[in-house]
């Protein structure tokens, strides 16, 4: 196993000839824009960074099911109900694809899940805000999924093969997620006064948190540089953020609604979109567990795991009995 090689080598201060060779092979693969595959040797920090990023991404998909699942039983039409179920179900699927990718790095799903349930692992802080109205289904699809897609498309070319492949699959499937959200808002914006108000309110609440999904500003994002050198990330946080805000600035016009940002404008000089200062103190507070919904989100996940324990155990016991009776 590659991990063993690395641990052994850490015992000696001077890298062995084999390790230098392995590092050179790794660097060459990254340099060639090729892909690292699970059984290749990789530097331990690369493995750790990826495991953290991929599993956080997976956790976000799983926790991210909750705000939308909250509206499935109350969806205002049967067609919308079906679309919403399909979307939330996709999120479970995407979580699974990502856990699969993370597992190829040598950490089991069980361990990853344990990290989430015990609060050692993080997930996207936006899911710690409540989905209070039906219009939030629109805003989450349009803004939250939109920001996620803007983040994810470049990840399809991430240097770690299984992660890139999972992202390709996810991006293909998510193409409908953003559109359905936009169309929910479009229907509301063309509807009654109450519906229009509901749509604007949802955009007002999700605008800023969705911009923060791209992560802290570049000058406060210490890990970004290394991730870009490893070709896990291809663009900086700020760069992706300004591109996204430019897209939604145009799209919101189709809705006939507004973004809650008087400072939003395209800067001809730099060729970039400028937006208002974001409240990073709130962002950090939510990440640390102080968001309105952190406690509920975690408890719901823990409850599902706890209440499912007897089922998982029974299925495993049945499989064992079957295996034994086949041997006998």
């Amino acid at each position: 196993m590659a991990a063993t090689t690395q641990n052994d080598s850490q015992l000696s201060a001077v890298p062995s000839y084999e390790q230098e060779q392995a590092q050179a092979r790794f660097d060459a693969i990254i340099g060639d824009d090729s892909r690292i595959e699970p059984r290749d040797w990789m530097p331990e920090p690369y493995r750790k960074t990826l495991t953290r990023q991929v599993s956080q991404h997976a956790h976000s998909e799983i926790i991210g099911m909750q705000p939308e699942a909250n509206w499935i039983t109350r969806a205002p039409s049967l067609k919308r109900k079906a679309i919403l179920i399909a979307k939330v179900q996709d999120e479970a699927g995407h979580g699974l694809y990502l856990y699969s990718a993370a597992e190829t790095l040598g950490t089991s799903r069980d361990e990853l899940n344990d990290q989430l349930l015990t609060g050692r692992a993080k997930y996207s802080s936006i899911f710690n805000y409540p989905a209070r109205t039906w219009a939030d289904m629109g805003a989450i699809g349009w803004l939250v999924d939109g920001a996620a897609i803007a983040n994810q498309v470049p990840l399809c070319r991430a240097s770690y093969g299984p992660y890139g492949r999972a992202m390709v699959r996810i991006c293909k499937e998510e193409s409908f997620h953003q559109r359905q959200g936009f169309e929910i808002l479009l229907s509301l914006s063309r509807g009654t006064e109450a519906q229009k108000k509901m749509a604007q309110d949802a955009i007002n609440r999700f605008y800023e948190p969705s911009l923060m999904m791209f992560g802290p500003p570049d000058d406060q994002s210490p890990n970004s540089k290394q991730s870009m050198a490893w070709k896990i990330k291809r663009f900086s946080n700020d760069d992706l953020r300004q591109r996204f805000v430019g897209m939604i600035a145009e799209q919101v016009k189709v809705l006939g609604l507004t973004l809650p940002d008087p400072e939003l404008r395209f800067d001809e000089e730099t060729g970039k979109w400028l937006h208002k200062d974001l409240n990073w103190d709130e962002f950090m507070a939510v990440i640390k567990g102080g968001g309105p919904m952190n406690s509920q989100r975690m408890e719901r996940r823990r409850a599902a795991h706890r209440e499912g324990a007897w089922v998982r155990e029974a299925a495993a016991a049945y499989a064992n009995k079957q295996a034994q009776s086949e041997v006998a």
């Binding site: 099911m65 079906a82 179900q89 209440e307 499912g308 089922v311």
Partner: peptide, 28 residues
């Protein structure tokens, strides 16, 4: 549909989601 995000394992969440969607399709 209440099971969505509450199943004993993620794979089962996806399976129950499919079944729920089928039933909703029949109803519609």
């Amino acid at each position: 549909s209440h099971w969505v995000s509450r199943a004993p394992e993620l794979e089962e969440d996806v399976a129950l989601g499919n079944i729920t969607l089928d039933l909703l399709g029949h109803a519609r």
